[in-house]
Write a protein that binds this DNA or RNA. Structure first.
Lengths: 207, 207
DNA sequence: ATGAAAGTGTAGCCTATTTAACATATTTTT
DNA sequence: AAAAATATGTTAAATAGGCTACACTTTCAT
């Protein structure tokens, strides 16, 4: 998640072909293991993509802000290998497989648009993989830094446990690092919100 | 890497539109950071996909056997975020961006074929992410188990160091686990090749 | 064929993280 | 407004896996 990312994908003109759906906070848009049909475009809200591994541990893979696609892995009606949960009440447009196929025929420009999106998702996953060669401090630094970068204009509700789930560390480790940073004046914590005082410090940690 | 995977993607009829290229063992097909143009289809040989993270550590992401695509991340001429290196002398077909665009127009069936491939790549990456919540023993077990599964008919040259690079463990840890397993009769090591005696043990470790 | 380079076997120390455990605070549900 | 469910603060103990170091093998390049 939280990979710095400049392009906005312009799907607006295609939205009319999808079906609008509303999801309440905490509701699942799709669930790992169920069969999907097509994909979704997030118009409004905030969605968290998680994945449960073989031994039942849950990882946050990505936080999706509006104007991005979700669930592309099931374009061709296979099983979802992640779960998408609305963090805030959200509005999505659903594009079933068949709809999308028809659309593609009529709008060939969609192909590069779609593939760019998918490739971006791959990049996010790869970044996540690279995360795990780092020390825990570096992991957290990179995560926070990227979140600030990618979600400039969004207030992202991220708890200690979320950070743990994103990085694969335990909550206690996250707590320790955060506490240390607080003492060193690198971050400030005010009623469970984090303010980065010295972004350069985080940046240098990773370099 | 090494995700069990049943489908074979039938690109054969499209190969004529690509350019055939030969790569010697150890040669790079493309390199992380360079700009790519299109993608490659591996016809013959064996290719290893690696990625170097910010702090210079290298990870093996995937081992690609014939009849799969490589380098799809640069379909639209962006930077490669991985490096592909031939493990054996290999034959690939290169499909530059423009060629592929033309092809797509004439053969709409390529769209699902291509997207399936890309989605498969995403699955591989995700599996890799899930790997890191496991213990070192579990990581190695899963890796070996998957390799056996995916590469049934291939002899995959995988060294201790490769296992280390795949799992993110140190060579020493890999060695320790392997030694223990050998003593317990779970695997057998004969001139640096590994034979799994009790696949169920590996399976149970993860399940 | 030979020297260089890469991979493996092994030991021991050390510290960063995990686990466990419990108190307190906050948020959500009814 | 009370009860239930989540999230956080904190400590102490156990340990897994990292790093160092070095001898020995095998493979590769010329």
């Amino acid at each position: 998640m939280a990979t710095l990312y400049e392009h906005v994908f312009d799907w607006d003109s295609y939205l009319q072909f999808g079906t609008r759906q509303f999801f309440k906070r905490k509701e699942a848009i799709y669930s790992q293991g169920t069969c999907g049909d097509g994909f979704y475009f997030l118009k409004k809200g905030l969605v968290r993509i998680v994945s449960v591994n073989a031994s039942g541990k849950e990882r946050i893979l990505n936080i999706v802000i509006p104007n991005q696609l979700i669930g592309v892995q099931s374009l061709d009606q296979r099983q979802h290998f992640t779960t998408a949960i609305a963090v805030k009440d959200s509005v999505v447009y659903h594009f079933p497989c068949e709809t999308f196929k028809t659309l593609l025929k009529e709008h060939p420009k969609l192909v590069p648009l779609f593939s760019r999106t998918v490739i971006h998702k791959m990049k996010i996953l790869l970044d996540r993989i690279n995360l795990d060669t780092l020390t825990s401090e570096q992991k957290i630094a990179l995560l926070l830094h990227n979140i600030c970068y990618e979600f400039k204009n969004y207030e992202i509700p991220i708890s200690q446990q979320d950070i743990a789930s994103c990085t694969g560390l335990t909550r206690i480790t996250v707590y320790k690092v955060l506490k240390q940073w607080q003492e060193d004046g690198i971050i400030e914590i005010m009623n469970r919100k984090y303010y980065i005082k010295k972004p350069d410090f985080l940046r240098n940690l990773v370099n």
